[in-house]
């Protein structure tokens, strides 16, 4: 793994079928993500967007088609991967500092070398002073901040986030959006961010990939031209609303949003 680099992703004609339950989750997915790009993947629940993320992470094998991360075919979890889940997946028995060391421990790395990086990430998220706290002592937002720091601590080339703020209250969620953007601007990792919030997808993404209901296909890819750093107020701007209404129109066309019963 080369420090400070970011990975590109190539997905070609990806199809994923879960034979045991007879469900086709993904159909004909082709997309590419440039190194350092922030891509939001937006779709209704159960549309297969999480499956796409899991395929890129090498946790699921495609039924057909191919995925390349940094030019290498994915046959298992690629090197230099950071992941964040909806439930923070922190280890209850490790304090904050030691939770951040998990990626280092798994590759038998040198903890001492990673400490400085861990400390600066914790400072960036306002968690300094909480190094020795256990997850049970933290709020939901703080826990998810720790999870994000853990995903970044080993300097990954690719960050995969699966509805990371879905379980947080609205205010905390807004705050986390701002913080994630700040971290991304500082680090410029390649990020794939799965969400079902239209606002979140536009606010964070360079592009928004909109999915159809199952079997998931790409309905449209929207380039978000809003300058960065984006402030929360941008969400009530005319440009922002134009993007949002375009996506809502797409969802209405799929029969997902209906005004009348």
């Amino acid at each position: 793994m080369t420090a400070g680099s970011a990975a590109g992703i190539e997905v070609r004609a990806l199809r994923k079928r879960f034979a045991d339950v007879g469900v086709t989750a993904l159909e004909e997915i082709s997309m590419s993500i440039a190194p350092g790009e922030f891509v939001s993947v937006l779709g209704p629940s159960g549309c297969g967007k999480s499956t796409l993320l899991r395929c890129i992470a090498g946790l699921e094998m495609p039924s057909s088609g191919s995925i390349r991360v940094n030019g290498a075919e994915v046959s298992g979890p690629p090197e230099g991967l950071g992941m964040v889940f909806q439930r923070d997946a922190l280890l209850d028995w490790r304090n904050v500092a030691d939770n951040l060391m998990l990626p280092i421990d798994f590759r038998r790395g040198d903890r001492a070398m990673a400490r400085a990086r861990a400390a600066s990430l914790l400072a960036m998220t306002g968690l300094q002073g909480f190094e020795s706290a256990y997850p049970a002592q933290l709020s939901g937002g703080m826990r998810q901040r720790v999870a994000i720091c853990r995903a970044l601590v080993d300097d990954p080339v690719l960050l995969l986030m699966d509805e990371p703020f879905g379980a947080l209250d609205a205010l905390t969620r807004d705050q986390m959006n701002v913080e994630l953007q700040r971290m991304w601007l500082a680090e410029h990792k390649t990020v794939m961010f799965v969400t079902h919030s239209i606002t979140e997808a536009i606010f964070l993404g360079d592009r928004v990939v909109v999915f159809t209901p199952r079997p998931g296909r790409i309905a449209e890819v929207i380039e978000v031209g809003l300058p960065r750093p984006r402030r929360l107020a941008v969400r009530s701007s005319e440009t922002f609303n134009a993007y949002a209404s375009r996506i809502r129109t797409l969802f209405e066309g799929m029969g997902l949003l209906k005004e009348e019963a």
């Binding site: 090498g58 979890p77 090197e79 992941m83 997946a89 590759r107």
Partner: peptide, 25 residues
């Protein structure tokens, strides 16, 4: 929790490391 097992796999943790660092505690 399944998320934590996924995380261990994504971090390329082997079976023994996962047993020792995740399952036992």
């Amino acid at each position: 929790p399944p998320d934590i097992l996924d995380l261990a796999r994504a971090l390329r943790g082997g079976r023994l490391a996962t047993l020792w660092r995740i399952r036992f505690p």
